[in-house]
């Protein structure tokens, strides 16, 4: 069985998110094959963002596929169109195998899977696999004007948090009353 080297995901610093929805437009354009929104609009391209900025309690929260380890969408998918890739830690789609049962849409706890009536396919974040493999950032991350979005390796994140927690602990313990 292939070894998973790192678990990558896109995280969002909610304090930096300005709700400009640049991630949405960048994602939708790129997956429709365009760089320029004007060209895409004039070509009547089918543009669907895989990330959605949702307002909750006055805070903007970008929502997208979390690439769950125990992914309900992959579990319920009867045709094998959705599967969890042990090597990369991503949920992968094979649109050609999709039969359009929409079970994934129903079970996703984040509402991150959508059914496109126009193309007859499911639409969800693919973490811009090709870009990540070339060592580049996904389109949504590149488009964020405040740097709120980042691709991180979860192990590295956990390591950093441990380091920060340790630092705080030391500070508390050594603080003079």
């Amino acid at each position: 069985m292939p070894q998973q080297t790192e678990t990558r995901t896109v995280i969002v610093d909610l304090e930096r998110c300005m709700a400009c929805r640049s991630c949405e437009t960048a994602c939708a354009k790129a997956h429709a094959g365009y760089e320029d929104i004007v060209e895409a609009i004039l070509a009547d391209a089918h543009m669907v963002p895989r990330v959605k900025v949702i307002a909750a309690a006055g805070v903007a929260v970008p929502i997208q596929c979390q690439h769950c380890e125990d992914a309900p969408c992959a579990t319920v998918c009867p045709s094998g169109a959705l599967s969890f890739d042990e090597e990369t830690g991503e949920v992968r789609s094979e649109p050609a195998r999709c039969i359009g049962c929409k079970a994934c849409v129903i079970v996703c706890p984040f509402g991150a899977v959508e059914w496109s009536r126009r193309t007859g396919e499911i639409v969800r974040c693919d973490l811009c696999e090709d870009l990540i493999e070339e060592g580049e950032e996904p389109y949504c991350v590149r488009a964020c004007p405040t740097g709120a979005r980042q691709v991180i390796d979860l192990d590295a994140l956990a390591q950093r948090k441990r380091q920060e927690a340790a630092q705080r602990t030391v500070l508390v313990m050594t603080a003079k009353p």
């Binding site: 400009c20 929805r21 640049s22 960048a26 004007p145």
Partner: peptide, 9 residues
């Protein structure tokens, strides 16, 4: 860059 697509449109 990137500039806002809402503004462009």
């Amino acid at each position: 860059l990137p500039q806002c697509d809402f503004g462009k449109l």
